[in-house]
Write a protein that binds this DNA or RNA. Structure first.
Length: 331
DNA sequence: ACACGTAGAGAACTGGT
DNA sequence: ACCAGCACTCTACGTGT
């Protein structure tokens, strides 16, 4: 009864607290902090997320600055030994290439760098080289990896998934591959599931349907594979905290700060009682805002709230009554 | 107009076999 | 791997204020 869907819309009981702590830790690490006002809506909820390299307005969702450059190293070292180990020079090593980008390309054309045809002696030498190069590159496992990473890249670009999330997907796939989770499952399915898991981990709003649409597997297979790899790799996928949806909906509705504040309060209080478990976080947030708008004398109609939150009135009705009862508010 | 309730459909999860 | 059962959401419609 506690969790009956692993869908993106779900909140799992017990994970909420853990997740909150984790988010807090992450925030400390990445230095997520408030900056000026949003040029679009004037809201004061601009948040700089250096982990994702974006400055985003929590009110209207505007990405103010997505080319924020992280000038620091992409690793952290705590002593000099570690620094020696992690520091590196050379081309960027990327997880999205099957050999992490450490490849050598040998052109198939028998031309030298200036376009001149090669001598026959050189030609046969190149032929030998190509043969061994291919053999060393793409035998068995490696070929599958390359196929999968190609898939991840294709789906990522179709879904507008940022590069770093793509890299995370690649890491997840490598892990699944390394743990021997592939036999019996399609490479495409695991690749798609890895991408979906990466998006979930990064809190990117990509639904199962979105990913299934661009993948070569059915939604069902994707969901099954996703659950499987999450379980087998013990991936920590946080539940979606309903409170995350509050600023967006509140600002679109144009309610007072008090409503927003009280809505978050309602969510926090009631989720402690396990009311969010199994419910759609967005619908839950919408209901809290509706209830808060009544309590704060800044009432919006169910219809209006339902519209901006993209849920139905029915859902709001059901949720807000539970919430009202739970916090002992007479409505 | 707005709020409320309900029925039936549909999708998705758990647990059992 | 399939099936039954089930909580949840949605659509649709009727009723009450």
């Amino acid at each position: 009864m506690v969790e009956h869907r692993a869908d993106e819309t779900l909140v799992r009981e017990g994970e909420v607290e853990d997740h909150r702590e984790r988010i807090q830790k992450e925030d400390e690490l990445t230095g997520e902090d408030e900056v000026e006002d949003c040029p679009e809506c004037g809201g004061s909820h601009l948040v700089s997320d250096s982990r994702r390299g974006e400055v985003v307005c929590e009110d209207c969702g505007l990405v103010v600055d997505d080319v924020q450059v992280d000038r620091g190293p992409d690793w952290r070292a705590f002593d000099s030994a570690e620094r020696d180990q992690k520091s590196r020079v050379g081309g960027p090593v990327t997880e999205t290439m099957h050999d992490r980008g450490l490849s050598t390309e040998i052109d198939w054309r028998d031309r030298d760098a200036s376009g001149q045809a090669l001598s026959s002696e050189k030609r046969s030498q190149m032929k030998r080289l190509r043969k061994w190069h291919k053999r060393s590159q793409a035998k068995g496992k490696e070929r599958r990896l390359r196929h999968a990473l190609g898939e991840i890249e294709r789906m990522s670009s179709a879904l507008n998934v940022p590069d770093n999330t793509q890299e995370i997907a690649a890491v997840i796939f490598r892990k699944a591959h390394g743990e021997g989770l592939l036999p019996g499952r399609s490479v495409e399915g695991v690749a798609a599931a890895s991408l979906y898991a990466a998006a979930r981990q990064e809190n990117l709003p990509r639904s199962l349907d979105d990913v299934a649409d661009v993948s070569r597997v059915s939604r069902q297979e994707l969901a099954r594979t996703y659950r499987y790899i999450v379980r087998e790799l013990s991936l920590e996928i946080g539940p979606t905290n309903p409170a995350k949806f509050v600023p967006q909906i509140a600002s679109e509705l144009g309610v007072s700060d008090e409503v927003e504040y009280r809505a978050v309060e309602i969510i926090e209080d009631t989720s402690e009682m396990g009311l969010t478990s199994g419910k759609s976080p967005k619908g839950y947030a919408a209901a809290a805002i509706y209830l808060a708008s009544i309590l704060a004398n800044d009432k919006r109609t169910q219809n209006a709230v339902a519209e901006v939150a993209e849920v139905t009135e029915v859902t709001i009705r059901n949720r807000y009554q539970e919430q009202a009862e739970a916090i002992g508010a007479a409505v």
